[in-house]
Design a protein around this nucleic acid. Structure first.
Lengths: 207, 207, 207, 207
DNA sequence: GATGAATGAGGTTTCATTCAT
DNA sequence: AATGAATGAAACCTCATTCAT
């Protein structure tokens, strides 16, 4: 049993995270402009006024939503490569599957869809997202490709092209799930699809 | 030189198309909710009131935007397969490149991005889009895969999976271009990328 | 057979009257503010633009509607008394029945309801109506009452009170018919009611 | 002195009534369509936005105005007959004077004028009003007439006709006061007129 | 810290009015 | 004389933001 003030404090500290989680869900579902702060607040179990205790404005909340969901992603992504070994092909597969479990199976997937939706309305956030997430992933892939080529596993391919080719199926899967797929119940089995498409791609990469 | 009433009439007939074009551009850029009708109207060279001569409401305009940009797509898509021959691989490449020139290089690309953005806000439109565009494309691909398998060109693959794997790069390319790509100038050469990713995929399909 | 230009001219001369008739009907039904000029015009078989050839503004049309429907009323009302003879009671009954056939059974009834509805929005028109119609009727009644009292038929009554008492049933009948009665199908037989209520009143007036 | 939250709460509870009162005044004066919500709000000492905290739309406000002003009327009307005794004539006079003090001398009079004005635009409200107010009054009158006839006080008259004849002067008085009368200062003394017209009518009813 | 009543700027929508044809 | 496309002011309505309690 804890003192009431402790429970209170814990509550208070949890508030921003609860609000961000509620906001992410609704922003992903309806878009930034079409989401009412009233709905965000009540989804987090508080009232609109409370929201303003923690965020200066709707836009501030949006930025917090992106940032809070990207930061842990970055933290865990970097050591993904370091912790793998084996062939370049195995490394690449590990990289993609890690990315999937980090992005495809968490809230970070929603963030991807949200960025696609709102990029033009918040170009600076888009640039940040691109550098913090996309370019970082690209660099990881590039390293693995270099390794694979050096080891004679892979053909000499354009790294940029290869990166997009490798990640497109996973990204499409995410975006689809949060948009048209959510309305049509056409749900693909992710694990199966990830295997399938990676095999296709890998085949193409091999010497 | 034409009679004045003709010019008048012509103007009136052109208006809806002009408004739809302006609306598409802005809806794709900012999303439905964040787009002001004032801006749509002035982008079409008229005032807000005029817009209401042709569309009952903002939502009606949205539906018209989708429909008007999909109808010609459907019309031209169907005979795409019929007009090709050669190996199944050539047929498939032709199909994808046709789709690209129909969707990737026209306004229909914007519609795809718009549907991804607004699907959850207009689920019935999303269902319509899925059936009119996606499922139709899926059926075409399926036919070609059947042919390729029958001819011994392709492995026996899950058609659903293969469809998504084949189209993901192209779809991703489009969505990227209208969102994050528009903010970061990271523009991939489409023709090159289409070739690259299709080769990868085709490699994986072959027996 | 007449020349086309003649027919045209006739048409042209009829226009204002047709527009006024259409406007009266709709103003009475929905009120001035809730009536769209578009509807007035199309009820008269023309377009909105045409309306402005004959009337400067919506308000001008309103004033014309009142005036055009009152003028003939006044013209015919005045000689109503002159053309009657017999007892004061017979004269009074004649007056009321004449008023009924002039107002209750023509468009002028609608004007009464319209004036009740719009008086506060057009006070000057209300004043005009009161003087041109109500006060005029009051004076006629007053003359007959004087006659009746002089001849010993009627009690010495307050003319103002008597006037309102005599006309209230007829006015109520009209107003009811154009408002709540039109929605509830509770229609009273006018002729019967006029007889009934006048007999009641006359009984009360008699010595 | 009360706690702040109480005052707050009290304020909130008073708001709808204040808005309804302001709306009634303006609707009666200008009609529904010609009344701006801006004006209603500022007449109630708040801004437009506040109005929407309590009413969904202008139409909802209209319906609330009617309902809130009719409900107390009905509550108090029914026991009017029960609490009277004496001759049928005295009962009838009591009924009419009670109605006058309930309708003629309160906001309910404005509602009558408003219903006359807006019946055709809100037919369902008109039907409700007719049944809740008019038909109810008619039934009361009918009972008294039956009594009077049974006791040999009254002639055998058509109840429907008699009802309208009895109430017309009072209704006309109300409608007049809120319309043309408000513009012409021709104000009749209500008490005097009620006596006068009722005497006339009663005379006519007697055997 | 939390509330929720209140605000007012800004959006959608309507419609009286104009004017080129 | 008549049209009807176009306008823009003004209405209804929404919702991010504020603030007294």
């Amino acid at each position: 049993m804890e003192s009431p003030s402790r429970a209170h404090r814990r509550r208070k500290e949890a508030r921003p995270a609860e609000l961000i989680a509620a906001a992410l869900k609704l922003f992903v579902e309806h878009g930034f402009a079409a989401t009412r702060l009233d709905d965000v607040a009540s989804a987090a179990g508080v009232t609109k006024g409370t929201l303003y205790l923690y965020f200066d404005s709707k836009e501030t909340l949006f930025r917090a939503v992106i940032e809070q969901n990207i930061l842990p992603l970055i933290a865990r992504a970097e050591d993904s490569v370091a912790h793998h070994d084996g062939t370049a092909a195995e490394l690449l597969r590990g990289l993609l599957l890690d990315w999937w479990s980090l992005v495809g199976e968490t809230e970070a997937g929603g963030v991807l869809k949200l960025m696609v939706t709102e990029a033009r309305n918040f170009p600076d956030v888009a640039v940040y997202y691109n550098e913090a997430v996309v370019e970082r992933a690209k660099r990881l892939v590039s390293q693995v490709l270099d390794l694979g080529i050096a080891r004679g596993e892979f053909r000499r391919v354009d790294h940029e092209m290869a990166f997009h080719a490798i990640f497109s199926p996973a990204m499409m899967l995410i975006i689809w799930r949060y948009s048209i797929g959510a309305c049509c119940g056409q749900n693909i089995d992710p694990a199966h699809f990830m295997d399938f498409s990676f095999d296709l791609t890998l085949n193409g990469l091999k010497t």
